[in-house]
Design a protein around this nucleic acid. Structure first.
Length: 544
DNA sequence: CTCGGAATAT
DNA sequence: CATATTCCGA
């Protein structure tokens, strides 16, 4: 049954009770999967026969919300038949023969996701996302009367699940109050997620309905210093909307100069960094309060949170090495309250950092220590959080990556600063591979699993790859996931497009699939595959 | 006086 | 340590 937004609205403990149709020819694996799912309070209906599953599906559509179907090697239809016929049901395909072409075929035929066996609990736990996704996308035309409740209910459930799957990597470091709740959409990203989720995550779900109307496009760089934004927002009426957060101490007696700022600072920073994650209204309120308070009276250190830094980097990129001077950067950033000094200071640091990285030969040893830090820094900010960015308002995007001059400086070891850290040549592989269910990647430095919303994004990405790069490259991207450095090399233009698309997809999960692209047709997919001799796809299940 | 940028202070 | 503040030449 196609779950609608309204259905979700009235759903008590949402993910619980989700009706899952499980089709798996392997009794053992089916039982195992079922057990896991049931442990998560899902409602499972197991089928070993494709046709039975299908008929059950058509006769009692209301009995299923999502399907998990094994790409069977024994069955004649292989599970594809189901996939093709159960169009209304978000269908997740699984397989234990980790075959790229199979995966592609599944996606092409409409699978919402492809997971390799064995199915991890994380993967299973998050299947509800597809229901939500479908509900909101399908129901786009039939908007729920009141988006609010829906959003709230979904929001809370997001949090629940978020916490659940979060336990793996913990609560170490600052888990003070407001930090408790991870950003709903990608809880496991921790720090890094703010960039993407920042303001958006709060509305993510209802965005699927609202944002579509288009308010979200412009270059109004969605996320910026969350606090500043909220702050100015909430401050609009009160007092000087201008420089409230960051500066504005001069007006007061020096008496209260440092003290108050200092004491409030911690809160603020939390907010700055986690604004997106707080969905509890009370939480929100309190944070907002503290924000306001200090807004009035204190200049605070600028917290160069990822969002802010990203803006900074964008500005710098846009300006180019010669023009990148504090005042201009400041303009481009359009961040209220930020001063030229702040920017100058940051720029200083930025350049220093830059310098250390470029001459990455001799002085390696000096940077050793630093290197390590950079690495860990990178871990905190997974790729997902930093899709390559392309200024969309610039007519001719300047050579985005090699931004700080240094014509020859490739982005090899750079991990610290923004997009720079993400070599263009391998925009998505590493991380996404895992989320795709490929056991390939040793989930080494990333203790988190990219599930949740990310999963959905991955499909967008795949589409993007399909469409823009073609199978040739898509293939390269996948298999080993150590993308040959030049897999994209021959398609500079496409590369940009892909980046853009990927970025868009990842930052706007609520958007309907197209995102400017179309899923590949099954035929083109298969044609391309066979052209490349990958056609061990077999199981020709009459493509539609 | 402004600015950018380096040096220095917090 | 990161960021702010100061200093200095243009």
């Amino acid at each position: 049954m196609v779950c609608t937004a309204n259905d979700l609205q009235g759903w008590k403990d949402f993910p619980k009770g989700l009706k899952v149709l499980l089709l798996d020819g392997d009794i053992n694996s089916a039982a195992e999967t079922k057990a896991k799912l049931e442990a998560m309070d899902y409602n499972i209906s197991s089928f070993y026969d494709e046709n039975e599953a299908l008929s059950a599906c058509s006769s009692r559509p209301e009995d299923f919300h999502v399907a998990i179907v094994e790409v069977s090697t024994s069955s004649s239809e292989g599970g594809f038949k189901f996939l093709e016929h159960a169009k209304d049901l978000p269908t997740i395909m699984t397989s234990n023969n980790h075959c790229l072409s199979t995966m592609m075929k599944c996606i092409a035929l409409g699978a919402v996701e492809f997971l390799n066996k064995p199915l991890s609990e994380d993967n299973l736990r998050n299947i509800w996302q597809h229901v939500v996704h479908k509900a909101f996308n399908a129901g786009a035309s039939v908007l729920p009367e009141s988006p609010k409740p829906v959003r709230e209910s979904v929001e809370s459930m997001l949090i629940d699940v978020g916490n659940l799957s979060k336990l793996s990597y913990s609560d170490h470091e600052h888990s003070t109050g407001s930090d408790k709740y991870p950003a709903p959409s990608t809880p496991q990203l921790k720090q890094g997620e703010r960039l993407l989720d920042g303001e958006d995550c709060q509305d993510q779900t209802n965005c699927s309905t609202e944002k579509e109307s288009g308010e979200h496009d412009g270059d109004s760089k969605s996320v910026d210093t969350s606090c500043e934004n909220l702050n100015t927002e909430s401050m609009t009426k009160p007092i000087k909307p201008e420089k409230n957060l960051i500066k504005g101490e001069e007006d007061f007696a020096d008496g209260c100069k440092g003290e108050i700022a200092v004491s409030l600072n911690p809160n603020n920073r939390k907010f700055l960094s986690k604004a997106g994650g707080n969905s509890t209204s009370s939480n929100k309120a309190s944070v907002r309060d503290s924000c306001e308070i200090k807004a009035n009276r204190k200049k605070m250190k600028v917290d160069w949170a990822p969002e802010l830094h990203k803006k900074f980097v964008q500005a710098v990129e846009q300006l180019g090495v010669d023009q990148a001077i504090p005042s201009r950067i400041l303009e481009l950033m359009k961040v209220e309250g930020l001063t030229r000094h702040n920017v100058a200071s940051h720029l200083q640091k930025y350049r220093i950092q830059k310098r250390q990285i470029v001459p990455r030969d001799e002085d390696r040893r000096w940077t050793n220590q630093r290197d390590q830090m950079q690495r860990s820094y990178c871990v905190q900010r997974p790729i997902m959080a930093y899709p390559p960015y392309h200024p969309n308002h610039t007519l001719s995007p300047p050579p985005a990556y090699p931004m700080w001059g240094q014509p020859g400086s490739e982005t090899a070891g750079v991990r610290v600063w923004g997009p720079l850290g993400y070599p263009l040549c391998q925009p998505f592989p590493t991380v996404h591979a895992d989320a795709w269910g490929f056991p390939v990647l040793p989930p080494p430095q990333a203790p988190f699993s990219y599930t949740h919303a990310s999963i959905i994004h991955l499909n967008y990405i795949t589409y993007a790859i399909f469409n823009m790069v073609g199978f040739h490259n898509a293939k390269a991207v996948d298999y080993r996931f150590d993308v040959p450095q030049n897999s994209f090399e021959h398609h500079p233009a496409e590369e940009e497009v892909v980046d853009k698309v990927v970025k868009e997809a990842m930052s706007k999960p609520w958007l309907p699939l197209p995102l400017g692209l179309k899923p590949p047709s099954a035929d083109s997919v298969l044609a391309e595959l066979s052209k490349q001799g990958i056609s061990n796809i077999t199981k020709d299940s009459s493509l539609s």
